[in-house]
């Protein structure tokens, strides 16, 4: 189980209000896409769930318990860049997570324990299609391969929550499609809750079971930092959900949908929770 509850969360840096009154319940096992304009606080939201940033006000809970205020093994992460350790080989990168857990002082495994950890690491590396590159350093990998490695590394901990911060943003369209085909089965197989920040709307709709859009509800030209972003749209993208998904899963039934028109009117749908 890995349900996340966000209750009335504000994030402020000095005078600047980044997020204001964010409320959301994320069901266990959901794949939530987070979209919104640049600088609206998408990544801040993600970092907050990660524990890297702390909310100024409000609470976040994971399965009812308050989220620890620092990153931990229950929440895996894949960043757009710098996600893997450049000084370790592909296998070493995945092995490291086992070594951290089993060797508190040296963070290094030897002998039989190393061999058994290596086997687990190899399975993960093969699982993301990096088997032939297991002994290369990340600098010798392409961007897509590095992100595959970052995913394998995050999966080694079997996190309850996987956070993706524009993970495929720097990849070319072909590679990006391959990554989509990789991440979806992995998500189903591991039963994690995934929160993915992305700029790519097609990706957001294509992968997610739910999409939230963050935006400022008001912009004061004299005081642009006075109003923070909150959840403006919250769409259910499951197959039987009410939202027609841009030609992905279902054809539009019955003309322009009520949701999209109400969205255009700027109605706040954030109160609606996901089934």
């Amino acid at each position: 189980m890995s349900a996340i509850k966000v209750r009335d969360v504000w994030v402020e840096y000095g005078d600047q209000i980044v997020l204001e009154s964010v409320n959301i319940d994320i069901a266990s096992g959901a794949f939530v896409s987070v979209v919104g304009p640049s600088g609206c606080g998408k990544s801040t939201f993600l970092r907050m769930v990660l524990g890297q940033d702390r909310p100024t006000r409000g609470t976040l809970t994971l399965d009812g318990a308050p989220l620890p205020a620092e990153p931990g093994p229950d929440r895996g992460v894949v960043f757009q860049r710098y996600s893997v350790f450049p000084h370790l080989t592909v296998l070493g990168n995945v092995l490291a997570s086992y070594e951290f857990a089993e060797s508190p002082f040296l963070a290094k495994l030897f002998g039989a324990r190393r061999r058994s950890a290596l086997e687990k690491a190899k399975l993960l590396v093969d699982g993301v299609g990096l088997g032939p590159h297991a002994n290369k350093y990340p600098s010798a990998l392409s961007g897509g391969q590095q992100q595959r490695l970052a995913i394998a590394q995050a999966l080694a901990k079997e996190p309850k929550v996987l956070l993706l911060d524009e993970p495929f943003g720097a990849l070319d369209p072909g590679t990006r499609t391959q990554m989509h085909q990789l991440i979806k089965p992995l998500w189903r197989e591991h039963g994690m809750t995934v929160i993915m920040v992305t700029h790519d709307l097609k990706e957001a709709f294509g992968l997610g079971t739910r999409l939230i859009a963050l935006d400022k509800k008001r912009i004061d030209p004299q005081e642009p930092n006075r109003f923070g972003a909150h959840i403006t749209y919250d769409l259910d993208l499951t197959r039987d959900g009410p939202v027609p998904v841009l030609g992905f899963s279902r054809p539009l039934d019955g003309g322009p949908s009520a949701t999209s028109s109400s969205v255009r009117d700027g109605a706040d749908l954030s109160a609606r929770s996901n089934p």
């Binding site: 990660l50 890297q52 620092e70 990153p71 931990g72 093994p73 929440r75 895996g76 992460v77 960043f79 860049r81 710098y82 996600s83 893997v84 350790f85 490291a96 997570s97 951290f100 857990a101 508190p104 002082f105 963070a107 970052a150 590394q153 995050a154 080694a156 901990k157 996190p159």
Partner: peptide, 16 residues
Amino acid sequence: IEQMVKAQTLGASTWQ
């Protein structure tokens, strides 16, 4: 900082 955060999400202590 991403690498420091990543290490923590892999369960590493400060020392590790």
